Simulated scan of single mutants.
Amino acid sequence: MDVNLDGLFRLNSSYDYGDDYVYTDDDLESRRAQAVWIPLVYSVVLVVGLLGNGLLLAFLARKKRAWRTSDTFVLHLSVADVLLLVTLPLWAAQASQSCGWCVGLALCKISGVLFKLNFFCGVFLLAAICLDRYLFWVHAKPLFSHKKPRMTHLSCACAWIISLLLTLPDWLFLVLEPHPWKEEWTQCVPSLYPANTRLASRLPQHLFGAAAAVVVGCSCLLPWLLRPPKSLRNQRAAIITLILAGAFSFCWVPYNVALAVDTFGGAKKTSPATKTSLMATAALGCVHACLRPLLYFGVSATFRTWTLAALSCAKVEPKGSAWGLGVGEDAVPERTPEEEEELKQVANGEQQEQSKVSSCDS
């Protein structure tokens, strides 16, 4: 069975194979291998992701009374992952069915949009979390507050709106067309538009991907260099934030690098090796949709205890913040030893003045 799953992950005109393109035995073997490993990988990601995110959403639903700002961001990240997960059976079916994409143009466009939407939402929400922690640890002025949730909801809404706007190229260019050398096989691919439009359609992803990597990386690493957290609580929050950002980067950076190589490589046609790398790295990006609940299970004792209790049909009421991110929590900022000594001197001076006043009154 010969398949081509490259259409979901690329917005360019590389499908214009031309009459001079010759398919080799290696191309056929590669497509047969893709028809096996793509459905297998997506099936595992779908099952693990739906189970993990389902438990995550159930946990959040049970702790309404003890809701925290971190829970709001976790909720939005989980919803973005679920939206991506529900599209995976469609792409797995395209790889395994003889008709290719058999579910219509509307689902083709929606599936392509949700793939990009998951990336952009993850970028913006993680950047907001990291920026809040950086401002708190370094400048003692957090971006979000538990007492003022409006800023949190506004930031999450902006992340969704901007992400939807950045997926417009998928709405406009994704089409259904027959395979160039197998007409009975329909594929969901970008329409053939001028080559100079390729850079314009991909530029938002390249720019925001690079900018988010800088924001997330600097926000996570600079506090350790400028003002390392000294309390165990803040150290734990910094480590958990770094783990979440690192997992996101591990899953999505390879795809963005492969996409940039294809965009700026100068070749008019995408080589088979580049196509394979795009498909493999895009699958790795989809893996992230099931990875975050596993990370929460590993780093959060509260979520782990509740999950094990729920699986054993026991009732445990979740309390407080389960994620350890510390976003929006009203904590006392850490002070350096010099600041602590200065505060002690000020306090001692005030006590001496009060003692003098008391002795004069007596």
Rank of each mutant, 00 (worst) to 15 (best):
R233V: 14
W252L: 05
V45C: 00
D19L: 14
S191L: 10
Q94R: 00
V36K: 10
A95P: 05
R227F: 02
T305K: 12
I243Q: 08
A93D: 01
L50M: 08
P178N: 02
F248T: 06
H179F: 08
S14W: 13
P39T: 03
Y15L: 15
G328V: 01
L88W: 00
H139V: 14
A289G: 02
G324Q: 08
I240V: 15
N234C: 10
K63L: 00
F124L: 07
N348A: 14
L165A: 11
I110W: 07
L164I: 14
L5G: 12
V189Q: 06
D6R: 11
F173A: 13
G328W: 01
V327A: 03
L11A: 15
Q187W: 09
V257K: 05
E329W: 04
G320P: 03
L117H: 07
A280C: 11
T281V: 04
F115C: 05
I38S: 07
V316W: 00
F119W: 12
K116A: 15
P204Q: 10
I240E: 12
A331Y: 04
H139E: 15
A66Y: 11
L295P: 15
A33L: 02
D132L: 09
P142F: 12
L135Y: 10
A301L: 03
K141G: 08
V175A: 01
V36E: 09
V45G: 00
S163I: 07
N4W: 13
F9K: 10
E338M: 12
T305M: 09
